[in-house]
């Protein structure tokens, strides 16, 4: 009945984290008899005296329901769009989920809405057991992205880039004046006059994601960098 590793410490696959039945095995862990064991090379977290989980350091994005992701249209067929999600699994956006309006396919084609290589922010509606991913645009935040640029970061660093209730990305938005959309799949869309600085800030957050007090550090760094430009 004890914790075998410290909270927030680095653990390796197969390392026992907790002995006893007081905690539940969370994401990234499994139960082996009375022990909770890590599945990943990652950081162990003990949550609210209930749950142990491991946040992996690396890995591919696996689609989860209700995530907002940035995707590229990879194929257009009769009544669906296929969307590349920076993941082993492609998303399917059916015609009925693509738009609110009625479409007469005799008059319009699907390319008029989203063509190949178009970039969209899209919500994951459903993920089946065999990882068929159904997407939907029927959400306030889902839209087609026009202009701007996209960078890719590791999806495991996305929570850090967003920060507690959006503080980190909020700071970068304020200081650079860019519009930034962060997809859970690690794709980040930016548009604004100061894109270059924002990209550097995001790369800095990704590189130093494991350090503490990062939001303050980035605020300070952005102030100094903007002074240099002037």
């Amino acid at each position: 009945m004890s914790e075998l590793v410290k909270d927030k410490s680095l653990v390796i696959p197969g390392e026992a984290l907790f002995e006893g039945m007081d905690y539940l095995p969370g994401p990234g862990t499994y139960r082996n008899d009375k022990k909770i064991v890590s599945k990943y090379l990652g950081v162990a977290e003990f949550k609210n005296n209930r749950l142990v989980r491991v946040i992996p350091l690396k890995g591919k994005y696996i689609p989860r329901e209700n995530d907002f992701v940035i995707g590229y249209i990879s194929r257009v067929s009769h009544a669906i769009w296929q969307v590349d999600l920076n993941s082993p699994y492609e998303g399917i956006l059916p015609l009925s989920e693509g738009t609110e309006e009625f479409i007469d396919l005799n008059e319009k084609s699907l390319e008029d809405f989203y063509d190949i290589d178009d970039t969209i922010v899209v919500k994951i509606k459903k993920v089946t057991q065999t990882k068929d991913v159904q997407l939907t645009m029927k959400d306030r935040r889902a839209k087609k992205l026009i202009g701007g640029r996209i960078i890719e970061i590791s999806h495991t660093k996305v929570p850090r880039l967003i920060g507690k209730s959006g503080t980190m990305v909020g700071t970068i938005k304020d200081k650079t004046g860019c519009v930034i959309i962060v997809g859970q799949n690690g794709r980040v869309w930016l548009k604004g006059n100061n894109e270059e600085l924002a990209v550097r800030a995001i790369k800095k957050v990704e590189a130093e994601a494991h350090t503490s007090g990062l939001t303050d550090k980035i605020t300070h760094w952005l102030d100094e960098e903007s002074k240099k430009v002037k």
């Binding site: 390796i12 696959p13 197969g14 064991v37 599945k39 990943y40 690396k58 890995g59």
Partner: peptide, 11 residues
């Protein structure tokens, strides 16, 4: 495999 972030029972 551990470096690639693949879930494993152990090494």
């Amino acid at each position: 495999l551990a470096d690639a972030g693949i879930p494993m029972k152990g090494l």
